[in-house]
Write a protein that binds this DNA or RNA. Sequence first.
DNA 1: GAAACGTGGCT
DNA 2: TAGCCAAGTTT
Length: 348
Amino acid sequence: MLLDWYDAHARDLPWRVPPDRSRAGERADPYRVWLSEIMLQQTTVAAVRPYFERFTTRWPAVDDLAGAADEDVMAAWAGLGYYARARNLLKCARAVVQDHDDRFPDSEAALLGLPGIGPYTAAAIASIAFGRRAVVVDGNVERVMARFGAVETPLPAAKPELKALAAKFTPDDRPGDHAQALMDLGATVCTPKSPACGACPVQSGCKARAAGLAADLPRKSPKARKPERVGIAYVLRDPQGRIYLERRAEKGLLGGMLGFPTGDWSDNLADDSPPVRARWRDSKLTVRHVFTHFALTLHIHVADAAPEGLNGQWLAPGAARGALPTVMRKVLDAVEPPREPEAPHTAG
DNA sequence: GAAACGTGGCT
DNA sequence: TAGCCAAGTTT
């Protein structure tokens, strides 16, 4: 059965209580479960690990994080993507401190009311951190269920059916381990491509396996193709070699993050204009970056000047780099190639 | 329901 | 290389 497989094959993850200790009744720290779940949304374990270690070292408990400065948290999140998660992370930590006496609520319904916590995360925290029976459905679980039940309805239309299937399998005993087992199974055995059905603990009951359909499920509705956009990044350098950065608006793309001034990215450069009067020149350098829903080519214009009337901040390139989202980091690296082969992240 | 919202790794 | 994919949520 699945839990036996988990006891033998559970991945060792820094936010997880291993199965032997879980069987003995130990539970994971809700703060660490929550933080890991937010970081893991649409993000790989490999990408999350170093961020999780840095966050928990710097902010060991929810009240530490709640007391942090916004810009410090945003800088520490830089590079992980989906920055609304970081903004909601802070809102959530502060809500836990102010409205819940520094403790995460232990019910799925109450968790669902907190910023950044949706149906998946609420169920995951309720089951993993609090031992509640909750139906945890992420992309892994959807894939495992679609295969096990040979559900041929394409996603996302199949979601309700897959959740109903997942509900049938959710046990009262060790629901958190069950959820993690299903996700581990999806990540290591029932993988999107070339599933290792021979190594699967539930292969005998799998309808897709029986029908030879495993690798073809779940089916997905065709996705829209990505439009191309272009823009100009304006890089200002003062006599000390510092660069000029602005905090982006709270909402929208890269919201709350530092970045070089840019125009609105569209299908042409026609109405792009510099943020301030200066001797701008086209560096002829460009940066290419692909976002979730569009691809961007950024032309880099530069000026060596420190004009009056700007509201942003001037930072040494080395200090700024770690706080920048990746697309802005690419712009910086194009203009000021880093000394080291790789300067690993000195956010903060 | 659909679109917005990042990034890096793998094929 | 171009596309697919990863422990989703919000609007």
